[in-house]
Design a protein around this nucleic acid. Structure first.
Lengths: 227, 227
DNA sequence: ATTATCTATAGATCTATAGATAATGC
DNA sequence: ATTATCTATAGATCTATAGATAATGC
């Protein structure tokens, strides 16, 4: 009984204790992922040593390899999990009963909000050169392309429906999509502006960039609960 | 005489010849800078070895160090030179006789064009984590901040003059500025769209994001020679 | 017995230095 | 004599493996 209480308080665990006595927060594996995400975002993948990651959670460098066989697998899993989360977070499919402008507005708000709130800070990782070239590049490029395509289809449909005007579809698409991608470089948690409000504002800027009529946009915002 | 002709053709140079016989293109130092810029953009700074840079121009790894004392000095000079070029390329100061909308439009066109045509491809380098943290971060952050401030002042003035409308000045500023920063991730030389046309189009998207009146924008574009 | 850590270390880098070498310049 | 390269290598990493160790579980 006394033993059980101890177990609950100190989480007495199987295996040799850590020399640092630092406790596990989530699970050892998850703790590694979070520490690595922070370090990779700040310093880059190649500039971050396995020793730094290990020390960040209070274990010795070789102990890392009982959780991940290779350093690269850490980055791989960060990308994989956050990609999965992204596709869960984005509206499942574009409701054909809505106008394209409605669908794009919702998609952008979700996308921008996701980039600000995703737990691993994927926004900071996506700019890593190691995710643009090298063995992980294909998977990243593919899911990125999938989302860009979705943006592009909606913008094209919105033009046909007379809600948007663009000179060049590809330029407009990439620019609007890029508003999300560049978000990470300036966004930081700021209590005076919630992520939701920022996402709304950027979606508003994007809709105007696509030259939507102001009254139409007001109607859309009213429908989806922005102020 | 025959010697002089040879000198011109083969650029016979002082010093031990390269084992690769690969000739200098611009100057050894400049060749290093260009090769390094390409490799850093593609692979990242830390993931690029001095051996790779040396081999790219046809010399052995240790020979690099007769041109740059430290690897870091290469990145330093890339940043320094392209920053210098940027401040030369941007309109010198904001002409107070012009409207803020006019000035911003010109500033954006210059900025976006610069990012697409700068010889070292600085757009690709600015996302490197080594330029966001570490010893070079301060210089980069400072010049970046200077330009953002300029954007922000113009947008604020444009709002006062009744040409722009924004909900949140900082969000609008960073989003518009970010259109340039994210450009590099999708722009590639494409003969069907000149950099000038793309810069004009993105400036147009940005002006609309700031909710300028369409007729006012047409007048501005007419004044500064866009179609 | 099983588990999660530890210590010790191999082997592969990578940056940078020292000193030799092979050209031109005078 | 001066210059720009070369070869050889020191010394500092860094990733990953092998095998020991100190807990819990049964």
């Amino acid at each position: 009984m006394a033993k059980q209480r101890l177990t609950k308080e100190h989480k007495a665990r199987v295996g040799r204790p850590r020399s640092s006595k630092r406790p596990i927060v989530e699970s050892a594996r998850e703790d590694v992922l979070r520490a690595a995400a922070t370090l990779f975002s700040k310093q880059g993948y190649s500039a971050t040593s396995t020793r730094q990651i290990a020390e960040a959670i209070g274990i010795k460098q070789p102990s890392l390899f009982s959780h991940f066989k290779k350093k690269e697998h850490i980055l791989q899993e960060l990308v994989h999990k956050s990609t999965e989360r992204m596709f869960e977070a984005l509206p499942k499919s574009d409701d054909e009963t809505q106008s394209a402008a409605d669908s794009l507005y919702l998609l952008m708000r979700c996308d921008f909000l996701f980039l600000m709130t995703e737990p691993y800070g994927i926004g900071g990782l996506l700019h890593l050169p190691e995710l643009r070239n090298g063995p992980l590049a294909d998977a990243v490029a593919q899911s990125r392309h999938q989302v860009i395509e979705r943006y592009q289809r909606l913008i094209a449909r919105g033009v046909k429906q007379g809600d948007f005007q663009t000179q060049d579809l590809a330029v407009a698409t990439h620019t609007v999509f890029g508003m999300g991608e560049s978000l990470w470089s300036w966004y930081s948690h700021d209590p005076t502006r919630s992520p939701e409000k920022i996402a709304e504002q950027i979606a508003d800027l994007a809709m105007h960039a696509l030259k939507i009529d102001a009254r139409k946009l007001d109607a859309i915002k009213l429908r989806y609960g922005a102020d």
